[in-house]
Structures are given as C-alpha cells and as structure tokens.
Design a protein around this nucleic acid. Structure first.
Lengths: 351, 351
DNA sequence: GTTCAAAATGCAAGCGGTTGCAAAAAATTT
DNA sequence: AAATTTTTTGCAACCGCTTGCATTTTGAAC
C-alpha cells in the first residue's frame, strides 16, 4: 500500500536532494547553506534557504552525524533527582545549548539497581553526544575511561574537576563557607557546627574545609561536624534532633545545602528542648527557593547558578572543536545572603 | 577499489565491519546479532557478541538511525522549570525509558524570547525522536501540525489530551478536587475559595471545575475564585494578602498547586489581620515535598506521579510500532492526604 | 538417499548528509 | 585582453548500519 510508484518518497520527508533540484543547485551547495561557513554566495544561500523553507525542509540529524561525526548534542549527566536546584541546571543548560544551536540530552546516571546492559546503553549514548556536562557527584572511573577512549570533551559543573583532563566551572565553595563562618562569628555564635551532605562529594568537602578552617582561625577551635550522607530534608531534621539532645547544643549552624538547613530549622522549631534558650543561627547554601520562603528566611550562600551553568555550557561547546585545549578552571564568586527583615516574598520563579 | 589495504581506521572507532571480519561472518549477521529478532543462530550470536565485546564494539547510533529511521529516543517537552514536580517527571521518564532501552531527550519548549531559528531547531529535533511525551501546558497548533506531518506518536502526561489523535495519561483532577471540597465541608469551612495557577492550563481548569461543582452541590453556592496566572510562590502570597483585605475572608482554600498553597499560608501567617479569628484551612495539590515540610504540613492531593509517568512512557514506547492504535486515556486516581499530627518528618527524597 | 520447506546467512542498495578535490566562474592583476 | 588568483560550485566517495531479496544450510518428510 505504501508503495505508489518506484519513487521512494515513502515517508514524506523532504531531503536535501529535493531542495537541491528545486533550487537548481547541487546537493553539496544545499548542505553548505545549512552548515555555518561562508562557502557559498549570499545570494545562493538566500535562494536555497527560501526554497528549503517553502518545501518545509530541515536537515536530517542522523545523516549529518553520520557524515560529520558531530551530533550537536551535549549530554547532561545527573544522578541526583532530589535537589530542586537541578531544575535550574536543566533549564539553563538547555537554554544555552539551544542558543548555540546545540541540544541537551539528559543522561540519568542514577542506577536503580545493577541493570543488565546499562553499561552498553551508556556506551551507546556516549558516542551520540559531542561533549558531556557532568554534575553527578560521582563520576565512575569506568565512565572516565570510556570518555577518554572516545575522546569526548567533558566539563564538570558545580565543583572542582578531580580529573586532570577535564575543565570545570564552579563557584568558590571555600570562600562562601568562610563567609558563613565570619557571619556566625559576627552574630556572636559561641558553638558553631557544620552539617554536610554526602561526605564523598567534592562540594561537601570544599564547603566543610572552607568553614572549618575559618572557624579555627576565628575561634581557635574546631566546629562540630555532622554528615547527613545524603541531601535530604528528613536527614537535616534528624541531625537537628540529635543536636538538641546534646548538653550544650550548637547555637550556629552551617548546612551544606538549603534542604538540610530547613530540615534542621524545622527540628529546632518543633522540638526545641530546655537546653536551648534562643533560636540558633542557621545558614544554608544555594539560595534556593527553599531559603527564600518567608516562613524560613534561611540565610544562604547565593551562587550565580545561571551564569555558572551557561558559562559551563558555552565553554564546553566552544572547546569542542579544538583538539588540544588544556583543561581550565573557571571560578565564580558566591555571596552570603541574609534575608531582609520585611516580609515581602521574593518571587521564586523566573518568568 | 577503495578497499584493499587502504586502512581507513582514522578514528579508532571499531565498526560492525571489523567485528564481522574478525568473527568470520557478514556485516549483515553482525547487525542482526544486535537487533532484537531471532534471525540468527544462537551459536552465531554468541560468538559474534563475544568478538564484539572483545573488540569493544558498540553500534553507532547515527548509522542505525539513518538506516532504520528509528532513534530509540523519546522527547520530553517541558516548559515549566519552576515546578519541582518536574524533577520527578524527568527522573521517571528517563528511568523507564532506559529500562526499555530507550533514552529521553529534554525539549525545552520555553522560549526566552522569540529567538530566531528556534522553529527550525524544534523541527530538527522533532525528527530525531521516535515519539513525544508532552507535559507542557500549551502545545501550539504549529507543533501539533508538525507532529502530525512527521507522524510522531504523542502522549500527553498529566492532563487530558485535547487532541483527538493523542493518548493521554493523567490523574483524575476533578475527583481529587471534589475530595478537597468534601474535606473542607467536613471541616466546617463556611466560605471556600479556589486559587488556580494558569487559567489556560487544562489542569487548572479541571481542578477548578471539579471543586466548584462539588462546592455548589454541598453549599448551594459558588466558591470565591482567583487565578494566579502562573505557578509561583509570590503569587500565592499575593493572593493570600488580597484575601485578608476582604471584609470576610474565606476560611478554606483549595490551591491548585502546593507552591501556591504555601505562598498563601505564609501570607496568612505573616499578615493575618483582625478580620480573621482562626487560621484557615488550606489544601494544595501534588503532595510535593513542599507540602511535606513539617513547618507547613499542607494537606494536599497526592497523585501517583511515578506510576503515571512510567505508564505514560511505556505506553508511548509500546505504541510506537503499530501504525494504527487509537488514542487512549489512562486515568489514575488521586487522593487527598492529610498530614499526620505527629511531627516526624517524611523523607522527601527517594533514594 | 531424495525432495522440499524452513531457517540462517550474505549481497548490495540504500538511509541523508558531509567534504576533499577538481572544475567553473568571478575578481584581480598585468 | 590575456593571465593569474580567488571564490563558488559540483562530483563522487564515503559515514556505519539496516533490510529486501537471493542464496546456502539445515531439518523434516518421504
């Protein structure tokens, strides 16, 4: 039924060949009109594009990829689907990519269980993208090896690169953490504490060390340190509870994420015991929408998420071409943000 | 004549041809070993796979796509990057897709401004996916036409399909809303109100009509209705403020989303005026992590997000093959969830 | 041992582009 | 105006895989 004539336009798709013959040029020229360069006269290009538009043509990606070995796809590796922050990540990566005529594809590196064949899936996907943006806390050695083998360019976003070949774009976690220490000190906090998320994640490490060091300088002592293990509200809550059982609970906390921070705050509010006179001073990290809820008004270290992510994305795209670009580190500042006293809510959306 | 010893391994990639000659079979056979069917002897397949593995071969997607016209990619169209709910969406879609040997690619349909060429980008992407999962509140006519033209199968997730050709998988918003009305009534609420998000979005419409109808049945009157326009915390807050200026503010609210709900709650708490004696009864929708924060304990209609999303994904994948499957509607129940009195925090993460 | 259907394999023609190289056209110089 | 350079354009050979059809093997039936 699908036959018709021997013409093989079985699937409505209009191809570059159609455009070529319609516009009276060669296939090559059509191809060049869609590729970036200036290998073609302005006049010709205009004419071809016009015809293409009229015919409703758009280049077939697969063909292009196959021939050029470039897909204009960048992979975004994510393994944490709890952190609302990642929404912004997706958003800005895909926005920036689209602006550059690229597209982002989401690689969920979180494994529900050791699924059969998940390896090969990854391998298959990997060769499909031109480059990789990694935010996953943990990048397996195996994955790294595979990237190297296929020489994929990788950019780590949000934390320092632990790998000599990969660029990274991140914010100065240590400095942000030090700011928090200063703030707590200025607020007259006597017994500072640190609450981390995943102790293996670089971000936690950086935030902890920045904080601990400055605390030592200021107080001449070490803060109490707790690690939640994962970034979860109830973990923050649990740590809060635990703290309240101490004979003299800390009166100032630096939580490595806002989510932990509000968990802790809620524990403090709900269960405050006899051993605590005034509400403790709590600071989070990320300046996420959570910290901006008027009910919490959590002080938080703001990091230029959009800027950082967009920069990482374009850095990746920019360096895709050149074979030999040394890895770079691009650092953004972060800044402790204290909620204003008035009650006007901040819009948590960006229109 | 280009054959001979003209070694063309310019880029390390091992191809199906390599595997073929190494295993002493034809290219065709190798291809068949990787395709699903049983066109090949068990023995042969094993041998080939072994060789492939040894050589580190994995099939090139672009080649496969080009030849087979199938990409094993499904597109996920999203335009709201404010709703944390969407994180779960991403997560489960990509998990389910990966389980089926497919992959999800994120199509950001949100346009920062009328960007040049954004159209063609979409067109290009569209032809790259086998099918489309749509959650975007608004699916433009143009997009619909384009999908039809390329006969892409589309599944709408989270709301009723407005299109005769598209299946949809969603939860029974109307029923959930009616449950809320019942609850408010049972709580002795006198003056119920509805707060919607985007009045053009189907979900808002459904939640509103379900609520309004039942309220009419129960109270013999219409609830107050306000539309925030967008799903935003500060909008919820603003509406809360506005309500408090009324001579007799509502004493029970149904907010179409949790985000609006907590915004409203915060306004109520912070600015409660003289014209209100006891805190109003507020219910949200989604049972998101926000509603589960102990500080809010927002009653909320829970919907089986994971189930719904996974079902939508596999429904899409299942029906990709058959040309003629009528559109289906798969409805999930939702259930009003009242927070427990105790203060134990619920884990908001799923490990 | 034949005969014939069924199963397994291979051949070759694409899929829709890109790109090195060479020919043609336009611009520049002599 | 001829010669030379530079720019545009086209030719044709792939890119790596799938698939219809032909061919060979295998297995069952006679």
């Amino acid at each position: 039924m699908t036959q018709g004539r021997k013409v093989r336009k079985t699937h409505g798709m209009v191809t570059a060949r159609d455009v070529a013959s319609e516009a009276g040029v060669s296939l090559t020229t059509v191809s060049r009109c869609f590729g970036g360069g200036d290998l073609v006269t302005k006049k010709t290009r205009e004419r071809v594009l016009l015809v293409a538009d009229r015919l409703g043509y758009s280049p077939n990606i697969a063909g292009r990829v196959l021939a050029s070995r470039r897909s204009r796809l960048i992979g975004l590796m994510v393994d944490d689907f709890n952190d609302p922050e990642n929404l912004d990540l997706f958003r800005f990566v895909s926005a920036e990519a689209q602006k550059r005529n690229f597209h982002a594809i989401l690689l969920n590196t979180y494994r529900e269980r050791a699924e059969v064949g998940s390896d090969s899936i990854e391998a298959a996907l990997l060769q499909q993208v031109d480059g990789l943006l990694v935010t996953a806390s943990h990048l397996s050695q195996e994955m790294i090896a595979r990237c190297a083998a296929q020489d994929k360019r990788v950019v780590i976003v949000g934390r320092k690169s632990g790998h000599p070949d990969f660029s990274s774009v991140y914010c100065d976690n240590e400095d942000g953490a030090a700011q928090v220490a200063d703030y707590l000190f200025a607020q007259g906090v006597q017994r500072p504490a640190f609450v981390g998320a995943n102790p293996e994640a670089t971000v936690t490490l950086e935030r902890r060390s920045g904080f601990v060091q400055r605390i030592e300088q200021l107080y001449g002592m070490q803060p109490i340190v707790r690690e939640a293990g994962i970034n979860d509200y109830s973990k923050g809550y649990a740590i809060g509870q635990e703290m309240l059982t101490l004979p003299r609970p800390p009166d100032g906390y630096f939580c490595a994420t806002d989510l932990l921070g509000i968990g802790l705050l809620d524990a403090m509010q709900t269960e405050s015991g006899a051993n605590v006179d005034k509400p403790p001073c709590v600071v989070g990290f990320g300046y996420s929408m959570l910290s901006r809820l008027t009910r919490y008004k959590l002080a938080s270290v703001a990091l230029p998420m959009e800027d950082m992510v967009r920069t990482a994305t374009s850095h990746l795209i920019d360096t895709l071409g050149d074979a030999m670009t040394g890895p770079e580190r691009i650092v953004f500042p972060c800044e402790l943000t204290i909620p204003a006293e008035d009650t006007t809510p901040v819009s948590v959306s960006r229109p």
